[in-house]
Design a binder for these strands. Structure first.
Lengths: 355, 355
DNA sequence: CCACTGGATGTGACCGTACACATCCGGCCG
DNA sequence: CGGCCGGATGTGTACGGTCACATCCAGTGG
């Protein structure tokens, strides 16, 4: 070995660590650590020196080292059943923004198929990462069974109202929203109202249906069994074509905007006028809903609020807040062009042929 | 100290580590490490013992410790400008699925406002987390300047076609898609075609516009300046009302489905028939586009493919693959009800009043 | 004047893993 | 039969922080 010069900073120079900063600032590494973590007992002059050294060296605390010793990763896991739809993706974004503001990272996992192995795999992936807490936007009921089994201690916030769970829960008030939609139709004079519900392993689909049924009952109208759909516009269209066979209703409350869209499409294809012949209400207020034809009456949800509250709650739980509570965010009715008073009574209506 | 009994497993028992597994299996911790990392020189019998011990204790390797010593976090950062729209959120989901399949985690950061501080803050957040690589779905051109400045070495895949960048790039072929849309209109017999473009700090908006202009030029049609929009349906509606003043066109190619939706709304409000009087093409094929009225002719993108390829490419780069290359995924024309042959020539048309 | 107090700072140990290197052992060849 | 080789396994060390505890020092009251 003929090399005599000190190890030249050739190419890949190691990132500065806390001791480099300490040396630069002329203090001990512990003092640097205190500055980083905002300890109160540091003299201003010292803090200043350290901050300058940090800036000088471009120092960034190593998250891995930190996580190793504190056994806190500062990562929040978000379990999604579908990241593409408007609701979940809006919520995810607002969670991410809120978490970042608090210095937390957000890691996502999507459940592909709604079967047990997929749920387990997604959840396992998050747990492997040592997430500090979990937000569940995958409102299939069985998800919670898997969580209970796989990691019952993990701080958890679920975004759907479910009475079955004792964890923290926050939700847009789906039931109230569904009641608003239904009441709107009733107030317009409708008495024969159908409900096109979402898949029943989704808690929010259940809750919207519950709200619908409750409002119907409260107004002493006859109940009719809801149609169970799958959230897609394609299903809405299909359901619409089927419903034309027995035209014994004057309004439909669809559990989301997509299904409402397909429904309207089917009705129009059959020569029915919306809202002249049939009124339709959706749920979500997706962007563009006001430009549908006709502009869709629907229920608007406040996703920004949802994410922020949700993170607050989860961080509270992570930091050992033991109280369990539920919280609800109100939904709002947006009246547009797809609803109107029912057509004048026509006893033949149900027997006429459309299409 | 009067305590003589061994530390009882009272309440919060520490998670098992690699040495616990080693003890259980009767081997050294290094052997356990080898099994975990799939080293070839392990006897099957030994491997079996270790795997059983892992299973027995419910052992999970500690990511933080691993990241600390390898200086690899196994986290991929995704920088999004907007997680709510259909395109980005679909891409995000497919990236997440592909990454998970390879054992990587995905952490997201959304850029709030498109100003420099916001971009910097989002990027900084990801870098703090020691992400191994970065996927950028925020196609504003200025984002790349910030990346260059903040962390020029970070493996990077960008999802938009930009000639300015020497990093790996993958993209749905926006230009080809735009050409498909434009050619479709030309083949139907249209010669007076408008383009409602996206905001020009989005690379994909630029590329779609380039494709449109190129196709117009190739067919020796007269160019007209595109209208610059902001992606929203509201803007589409507004643009539509403006365009009605000078009805000197028979078709519009909108840079996304949302704007197309608003456009159609405005035309219909004014008493124009789509496609009878004006043809409209969108871009994206959002869910529901086939149930718009009229069902929207548009360009479909293959997001699933995009995410998978993107992760492949990024992991290649992370593992030291130096070749820089671009890749394109073809887009596809979906013909529905919003396009038709132009109306018979009518010299008065531009002067008639609609609305 | 000295022990005491409490704020500011420094020292040692440890978190759980992977890497480099050392060791062990059986079989093979000269 | 001994040395050598290579596959299988074990041992020391470093990664970059934080925590518990030790130390130092100035101000204070008895």
């Amino acid at each position: 070995m003929t090399e005599t010069s000190p190890p030249a900073s050739s190419g890949q120079t190691r990132a500065p660590n806390i001791r480099d900063v300490a040396r630069e600032a002329g203090v001990s590494y512990q003092t640097v650590s205190r500055v980083i973590n905002g300890s109160p007992s540091i003299r201003d002059a010292t803090r200043q020196k350290v901050l300058e050294a940090i800036d000088e060296l471009g120092y960034r605390p190593n998250q891995a080292a930190r996580a190793l010793v504190t056994s806190r990763s500062r990562v929040i896991g978000v379990l999604l059943s579908d990241a593409r739809s408007y609701g979940p993706s809006s919520t995810l974004q607002s969670i991410e923004e809120a978490a970042r503001a608090k210095g937390y990272f957000v890691s996502t996992a999507t459940i592909g198929l709604p079967d047990l192995p997929s749920i387990r795999s997604a959840l396992d992936h998050l747990i492997r990462q040592n997430v500090d807490g979990l937000v569940v936007i995958a409102p299939q009921t069985r998800v919670f069974d898997v969580i209970q089994q796989l990691s019952p201690e993990l701080p958890l916030v679920t975004l759907e109202a479910s009475g079955r769970l004792d964890g923290h829960t926050i939700a847009i008030d789906q039931e109230q929203g569904a009641r608003l939609a239904t009441r709107h139709l009733i107030e317009l004079g409708h008495t024969e109202i159908e409900h096109l519900a979402g898949p029943q392993d989704w808690i929010e689909a259940q809750t919207r249906m519950d709200g619908f049924l409750a409002e119907i009952r409260d107004n002493d109208l006859g109940t009719r069994p809801p149609i169970l759909g799958d959230w897609t516009a394609d299903f809405g269209y299909y359901a619409g074509t089927q419903m034309l066979g027995r035209l014994d209703f004057t309004a439909v409350f669809a559990a989301n905007d997509q299904m409402a869209l397909g429904l309207v499409h089917a009705f129009r294809d059959a020569g029915l006028d919306v809202p002249g012949d049939v009124s339709v209400v959706g749920f979500d207020d997706v962007p563009g809903a006001r430009h549908f034809w006709p502009p869709l009456t629907t229920i608007r949800q406040r996703y920004e609020l949802l994410g922020a509250r949700c993170v607050d709650m989860l961080l509270g739980e992570i930091e050992g807040d033991e109280q369990r509570y539920h919280e609800r965010i109100g939904a709002e009715l947006v009246v547009r062009g797809s609803t109107a008073a029912p057509p004048p009574h026509d006893p033949e209506r149900a027997f006429r042929r459309f299409g």
